[in-house]
Design a protein around this nucleic acid. Structure first.
Length: 278
DNA sequence: ACAGGATCCTGGGGGC
DNA sequence: TGCCCCCAGGATCCTG
């Protein structure tokens, strides 16, 4: 599923296709429930409004309808298999297309989600969106992570570093792929205790995370199965994986066979030689 | 506080 | 071809 680079790619793809467009209508096209159920009372709030901005916060997509203080927001999470795309209204719906918004120019904004772990919600104004993020304690963007704050966060917990990377309250947007890739680049074993990392290791990890995410954005994210960008294009970063999904293959640095551990139900790929355990 | 497991879903792949 | 089990870019809730 989409992590920060995939969500950022969707946002960048959608921005020119949506900005300035008028939403004629929005409607449910299936009756099944999403993670956060769609509320029919949102329809009149959205109908007739103009899309002003398309932004990303962590793994959340925020589409502002109307300007500044007046804006209402469509807030989308792609879960594991969510796709938010623009297509011509004449294009047939793919299976599991749950929500469709008709635009003025004959295109449609479509939300498709096979496993339905994602959601589309409406918030009445900016403060409601902010309150929502505050309630879930959404952490800072990886690119804005304050060095000393990051150090303190790691020093203050005995949790496994892999789980900390996946914790959206610590840093927003990292998921299983980019956690493994970042740990590999920083040469840190996923089961190290966060508080046991030396300051230079913590800083190396922060920099690795930023570099990996930036490179992945350049390559339009990773497509393993279902992910597509806002115009339906797939990602290309999967061709550059150094850790994720490489169990049994040679480490790109030392040729040692890569290994895989299951931590908190998530596969964790690493090189036993480059990333020594405790 | 933290780890692990189950849960929400569908579909693809491997083994038999 | 079919069936069964495991797996999957996420997040949350419950248990010990």
């Amino acid at each position: 599923m989409p992590e920060l680079p995939e969500v950022e790619t969707v946002v960048r793809d959608l921005r020119p296709l949506l900005t300035g467009q008028h939403i004629r209508d929005i409607r449910r096209t299936t009756m099944v429930a999403l993670r956060r159920p769609w509320d029919e009372s949102w329809v009149p709030i959205v109908r007739g409004r103009t899309i002003h901005t398309v932004e990303r916060r962590g793994k959340w997509i925020e589409i502002a309808l109307g300007q500044q203080e007046r804006a209402t927001f469509l807030v989308v999470h792609l879960g594991m298999t969510g796709q938010l795309t623009v297509a011509a209204a004449s294009e047939p719906f793919q299976d599991h297309t749950h929500l469709v918004a008709d635009l003025d120019n004959g295109n449609q904004l479509r939300y498709r989600d096979i496993r339905r772990f994602g959601s589309v919600s409406v918030f009445r104004d900016r403060s409601e969106v902010d309150a929502f993020h505050q309630a879930q304690q959404l952490g800072p963007e990886p690119f804005d992570l304050d060095k000393s704050h990051w150090l303190e966060q790691l020093a203050g917990t005995t949790r496994l570093i892999k789980s900390v990377l996946l914790d959206q309250t610590v840093v927003a947007g990292v998921g299983n792929i980019y956690a493994d890739e970042s740990l590999f680049v920083a040469r840190i074993h996923p089961t190290r205790r966060a508080c046991d990392l030396k300051p230079r290791e913590a800083e190396r990890l922060r920099q690795a995370m930023v570099a990996v995410l930036a490179r992945a954005i350049d390559r339009r994210g990773s497509t393993i199965r279902n992910y597509v960008g806002g115009s339906g294009l797939q990602g290309e970063f999967q061709d550059e994986f150094q850790a994720y999904g490489r169990t049994g293959q040679e480490c790109v640095r030392c040729q040692t066979p890569m290994e895989c551990l299951r931590l908190g139900g998530r596969a964790s790929h690493f090189c036993p030689r480059c990333q020594p355990a405790n």
